[in-house]
Design a protein around this nucleic acid. Structure first.
Length: 257
DNA sequence: ATGACAGAGTGCCTCTGA
């Protein structure tokens, strides 16, 4: 069972790339982020024609998350996180697919630091952690997949110096991520590449892709019951080099069953 | 210290992202 996290940076602009990816890789589940589309603009028919059912939580212009499943309709369990009823950002959706609970997560970027956006990021990590604890208590296979906007370790970026003042690498951001892992989640890519050097994002600017100046911010966190089934994990890096690519590459795990 | 890309809406500039 191949489960993918893919920040598409605009579902409309990326639709040909996404359909191409589904056709070529035939992943079982794909968690999308940054749809940048209202609910009614989601290209459900194109995705269904490619063989995938979907649930989505859109928003005009920014944010937006979705979960796709091959030959199945994901059963939605939750959209949005508890704790801030006034928060209207579409950043979390959770569904059941073939006995696995899947969440598609788009954690706030948080720049500039300091400021209200950074404060929102840290609060959002806390809210996610509360939901994660609830899921762990169910003692079932769970995959929390998404763009976490956190560079967990120094070896998860091409340059510590270049990113030092960025919200993605602040001690508070990392602490929030570590606290989440400490609940009992497994960072699947980290187990596969424990010394780092694997990127999931390359900026469009300054020739970052050509220089391989990337970092790892897209993560798949596994509950113990999912981690027991982990076969492999990786990044489908070549899709970042294609025409009209997203600035993120699809990042994935393969689970038994 | 600065700017460079890209997508989408407020649309040919502005806002946001990472």
């Amino acid at each position: 069972m191949k489960i993918v996290s893919y920040n598409v940076n605009g579902i409309k602009a990326r639709l040909p790339r996404l359909i191409e990816y589904l056709t070529e890789q035939q992943p079982d589940v794909v968690c999308l982020q940054e749809l940048k589309s209202a609910d009614e603009g989601f290209p459900e028919a194109d995705i269904r024609a490619a063989g995938y059912g979907a649930v989505w939580h859109g928003q005009k212009g920014f944010n937006g998350v979705a979960i796709l499943a091959k030959g199945a309709d994901p059963v939605e369990r939750k959209r949005g996180l508890d704790g801030e009823p006034e928060d209207e950002h579409s950043r979390y959706i959770e569904a059941e697919v073939n006995g696995v609970t899947i969440a598609s997560i788009y954690l706030p970027n948080g720049n500039p630091v300091p400021g209200p956006k950074f404060d929102y990021k840290l609060r959002w990590i806390d809210r996610l952690s509360r939901q994660a604890l609830t899921l762990l208590a169910e003692e079932r296979p769970v995959v929390l997949a998404g763009d976490y906007n956190v560079i967990p370790n120094d070896d998860d970026t091409f340059s510590v110096r270049a990113m030092a003042s960025d919200a993605l690498m602040q001690p508070e951001s990392r602490q929030g991520y570590r606290a989440l892992l400490a609940q009992g989640w497994t960072d699947a890519l980290r187990t596969r590449f424990p010394t780092g050097g694997v990127w999931t994002f390359w900026d469009y600017q300054a020739g970052a892709w050509q220089r391989d100046a990337g970092f790892r911010i897209d993560h798949l966190l596994l509950s113990p019951q999912a981690a027991d089934r982990l076969i492999s994990a990786g990044v489908d890096k070549e899709y970042r080099g294609r025409e009209k690519a997203s600035d993120h590459a699809p990042t994935w795990v393969r689970l038994r069953g």
